[in-house]
Design a protein around this nucleic acid. Sequence first.
DNA 1: CATTTAAGATTACATTTGTAATCGTTCTTT
DNA 2: AAAGAACGATTACAAATGTAATCTTAAATG
Lengths: 126, 126
Amino acid sequence: MSKPDISNAEFDVLDVLWERNPASASDVVQTLSSHKEWHEKTIKTLLGRLVKKGVISFEKQQRQYLYYPLIEREDYTAQETESFVGKLFKGKITPLVAGFATQKTLSKDDVNELKALIAQWEEDND
Amino acid sequence: MSKPDISNAEFDVLDVLWERNPASASDVVQTLSSHKEWHEKTIKTLLGRLVKKGVISFEKQQRQYLYYPLIEREDYTAQETESFVGKLFKGKITPLVAGFATQKTLSKDDVNELKALIAQWEEDND
DNA sequence: CATTTAAGATTACATTTGTAATCGTTCTTT
DNA sequence: AAAGAACGATTACAAATGTAATCTTAAATG
């Protein structure tokens, strides 16, 4: 029932399916080949594990399978973000942004986007 | 050299040492007892693993050890944040904040803090 | 002083993860 | 039709992780 832990390697495979849905195993292999050094067998294993975990599913297309995600990227991202922010910043985003700002340099564009975001928030809430 | 992966369980132990530095094993056990169901032995194991990983160290205090972290929470947090934001938000904080804002409700205070942060940034950079 | 106790060290063991190789079957291709 | 290629299923195996129990030794206690 609860969040089926998705490992790092599994995430990379799932990520491909979020981009290209549905996709055959070889589609995934192709896509990942550009930035990962994984053997085809490894990717097949990861697909299988994701299926077993109920994170993705597939439909038989003749002999191949067409895989597709069962969870939305937005949902996954939201959950991960919540637990991350909870774990490292006591649930507050401001210190996260603050730390990020001193660490990685924010661009003027980034700041403008944040301002727009806040402006939007203020418009909505009040 | 590289970031010595700190597991979730290990993190909770390290977190105690960031709060209470230095601390004996039993101090850590005591502190964690309030929110974790861990056996004392388990915590000792985790302390040992952190030492082996070079994340913490200790000084012999008679028979007990006094443990202390070797890495700063801020540094760890900064690194984790960078990889997290890189993995889920292509390195951009704005979408993280945006997603967080729609998911968890931001309080007026949160927004004010963010505004202050941005104002500060603008003052510094320009 | 003898014994119980408590600290850290060592060992244990199932599960998860990374990373494949092998197996059993079907499509292909000759 | 025979042989090879390609697909998913099954099996492999070491390292990491969660979660302790046992061992060794020294300190505390009767």
